[in-house]
Design a protein around this nucleic acid. Structure first.
Lengths: 240, 240
DNA sequence: ACGACCGGAAACATCGGATGTATGGGTCCG
DNA sequence: CGGACCCATACATCCGATGTTTCCGGTCGT
């Protein structure tokens, strides 16, 4: 194991053991390197990796701090997986995304607050207004879409789920999806599906919310590629 | 943006743009540093991070290579999230794990090969044999458990799903779970649940497999909740 | 001709130091 | 009392030197 790995694992272990807690300031590079038995260069290589992983926050002129270590931040680096894997074949990525967001919608139905429902409604209203104007602000439409899905994810009350959804519904993938969707002029259908999801949430009906979300994302997947695939709707159809 | 971030993003971009492909050997540190306009030290900090992220593979005396960039490898660094988040409250983690593994079981039911079913059967047979002996090899039992779940995950034929499951069913979380389960003597119930899952897979019945897996993991979660967490009283003396 | 052994080149690993730069806090002055 | 300034601190970056590992090709013996 290289010195760099020793640094990374050493800091990780110290965090897990409680030596360092979120928000703590780490010893200065010189001391930390000495206590780990490595040179400053090797220490910096390790700390750099920890910084990229979202575990520590390095501030020049100040010091190095442990982040809050919440799931969304730690899962953010995973975005590259989506960026790369999604290049040739977004099917697998989107299958997972659908799974995650359907569950989020189901959970959110019974947990979402009235304020959040109002916010989501406002977002959809704004989207409807933009859709009516002539020079449609696609950028803003995309932001609204992301915000709408985010509200649902957050109110599933599971930070891990939120982190995964954020990573898997990142701007890159969204951008690709929206490009193809807009060319088909499918904005209207997408908006109607969002409204349907919101109605299910307002009704506090988990299975309905889940089904609406599944329907929405399957629609997106079909627009993305005409491959029939094996997307059989998770078997969530409430009836048969 | 720091030089290190420039290196990380630069390499990522070059990969996404096709400048470097999986398996490619990168230029030597000196040249790469020069082309990116940074010193060797800064370059190494960035490459170290990329190595931790599983994007490149650095081999001393040889060179630096782009990894195959498959999802399981890129998702592996996420294991720390599980290790840390699961410390105080494994509920959120396990909710996601259950979601992922249920879907994997459902998908695997229609895709798993006869060979894989035979392997899974052999694993469960071995577990049954170990359970019958007096000095139960808990370590091996745990390995079998992981292998069993892995076979199912792999045959869901979705590398992204596999990567997530591998990360979320890591050894650390498993270890905690198994410690509590063994103390309850719940091995038998766990084994029976595994057998039930396997039967559903043999029957190629997706919903049955999904339900069996859900039942299995819910049982595990309930066992977990009953424990007051880390007040383990260190009672691992052989006498119990 | 074939294979084992050996040596050197290549490339990463690690170290130590020197210098630049941003931050935060204490201090001094108005 | 408040704002501007100064400086110690800590990270950022670079450089050069040396160690270690791997690969490859040449050489020698059979």
């Amino acid at each position: 194991m290289s010195r760099t790995d020793e640094v990374v694992n050493g800091i990780k272990r110290m965090i897990l053991e409680g030596t360092f807690k979120p928000g703590d300031r780490l010893p200065i590079e010189k001391d930390l390197a000495e206590s780990l038995g490595v040179s400053r260069g090797s220490l910096r290589e390790g700390m750099s990796a920890l910084s990229i992983l979202g575990i520590v926050n390095i501030r020049q002129g100040d010091g190095t701090y442990i982040t809050n270590l919440d799931a969304p931040q730690l899962l953010a680096p995973m975005g590259f997986v989506v960026d790369f894997q999604g290049q040739g074949d977004a099917r697998h990525i989107h299958t997972v995304r659908r799974l995650l967001e359907c569950e989020a919608a189901r959970l959110a139905a019974t947990r979402i607050t009235d304020e959040a429902l109002a916010q989501a409604g406002d977002l959809l209203d704004e989207a409807a207004r933009i859709a009516g104007r002539s020079p449609q602000d696609h950028e803003r439409i995309m932001e609204i879409d992301i915000a709408f899905h985010r509200i649902i994810a957050v109110h599933a009350d599971n930070p891990v789920l939120v982190g995964l959804i954020e990573a898997f519904a990142g701007r890159t993938l969204r951008g690709r999806l929206w490009r193809s969707l807009h060319e088909e002029g499918a904005d209207r259908r997408t908006h109607d599906e969002h409204v349907a999801i919101l109605r299910a949430l307002v009704a506090r009906d988990p299975e309905r919310a889940r089904t609406r979300m599944a329907n929405h994302l399957i629609g997106v997947e079909e627009s993305l590629q005409e491959l029939p695939d094996d997307t059989d709707t998770n078997g969530e159809n409430g009836g048969a």
